[in-house]
């Protein structure tokens, strides 16, 4: 067990101050609940001179209904998302995903913003200092080789947040604020395919709130993840599905997003052929195979990639069958 390194903690009560502190100092990181960041600091994966705690910023704490849609502040806890009636009714897989993050204790103080910005994870990265050192570190941190794909030049650490896929199937947007003002972007644009730097945030920028569209409110959805310890763990593979049925049970709209099997949350493409049809065995097999094909699990967990690819397809198929029944 490592001791905590020395750092300065700032606790600004407004976004502007938070951004100012972030841009004025070197080696500074934002922290919210801290359920992942504090572990990483303790293990020496992050070595900040300063931490800027965002949880005292008061205007990021609310869940607000706006014209039938919803705004969720980045500081809202996972527990509050899970228990929110409007979310449970109108965006059910988001509540489900929030309730599946880590264990119940983490959900009391882990936040929406923190889960969306969760660092990517890898078997060779999320380890103690001596473990990483005896392995000569890795590409993502201090080393020069990716132990997952030693001949490659890139990092395959997997994005493992549970909320992102559940929000992506509802076409969520986010407000990003930074030194040059505020911008609203699709949640999908927060991520890029790079395990080393999977967030597109500019220096000093932070996620302020999430917007969920009114147009999709009420669509049925599910989220489920496979994990090693059922009671508390990161996903080995996670699937969110939103499926709206129209007349005589035909598919009116369907969206699927994955977590933990790529360096970014993956929205599944090529599902348009399912629209207006029914989901019989052939279509469900098609969903399973499409999901498997588009997921790219690597050797980033103790569980083999082939198993995670099978599992992610199986979950997608089962959830689709449930929602279309």
């Amino acid at each position: 067990m490592e001791f905590m390194p020395n750092f300065k903690l700032y606790r600004p009560d407004n976004v502007d101050d938070a951004i100012k502190i972030k841009t004025e100092h070197a080696e500074v990181r934002f922290v919210a609940g801290g359920t992942d960041m504090i572990v990483n600091v303790r293990r020496g994966i992050e070595q900040p001179q300063c931490l800027v705690d965002l949880t005292s910023i008061s205007n990021m704490n609310d869940i607000t209904e706006v014209d039938g849609g919803l705004e969720i502040g980045a500081n809202v806890t996972l527990r509050n998302v899970q228990e929110n009636k409007f979310i449970r009714q109108n965006y059910p897989c988001i509540a489900e995903a929030a309730g599946s993050v880590a264990g119940p204790t983490h959900q009391q103080y882990g936040t929406v913003g923190g889960n969306l910005c969760l660092d990517t994870r890898c078997l060779f990265y999320n380890q103690s200092e001596w473990w990483r050192q005896s392995n000569d570190y890795c590409l993502k941190e201090r080393g020069d080789t990716c132990h997952v794909a030693p001949s490659g030049k890139r990092c395959f650490a997997a994005f493992s947040g549970d909320l992102a896929p559940s929000m992506l199937v509802y076409e969520a947007e986010i407000n990003v604020v930074g030194p040059s003002g505020s911008r609203r972007i699709p949640l999908l644009e927060l991520y890029r395919d790079d395990g080393m730097a999977h967030l597109t945030l500019e220096p000093g920028e932070l996620v302020e709130r999430v917007h969920l569209p009114a147009t999709l409110a009420g669509d049925p959805s599910r989220y489920e993840k496979a994990r090693i310890r059922g009671s508390i763990d990161f996903p080995l593979a996670g699937v969110a599905i939103r499926l709206r049925k129209g007349k005589s049970n035909a598919v009116e709209d369907i969206a699927i997003a994955l977590t933990a099997v790529n360096p970014y949350p993956k929205v599944i493409s090529d599902l348009q052929n399912l629209i207006d049809g029914k989901l019989s065995e052939d279509e469900l097999d098609f969903i399973r195979d499409t999901v498997r094909k588009q997921s790219k699990p690597m050797r980033t967990t103790t569980v083999a990639p082939w198993y995670r690819r099978r599992v992610v397809g199986a979950i997608a198929r089962r959830l689709a069958a449930e929602l279309s029944a």
Binding site: T35, V39, Q108
Partner: peptide, 22 residues
């Protein structure tokens, strides 16, 4: 070494939280 076992659970304003991550 952080958030996995729950041994350190205390109540902060009535809510169980990990003292090792706070």
């Amino acid at each position: 070494d952080g958030g996995e076992c729950g041994c350190c659970t205390v109540l902060i304003d009535n809510a169980p939280q990990h003292a090792c991550l706070t």
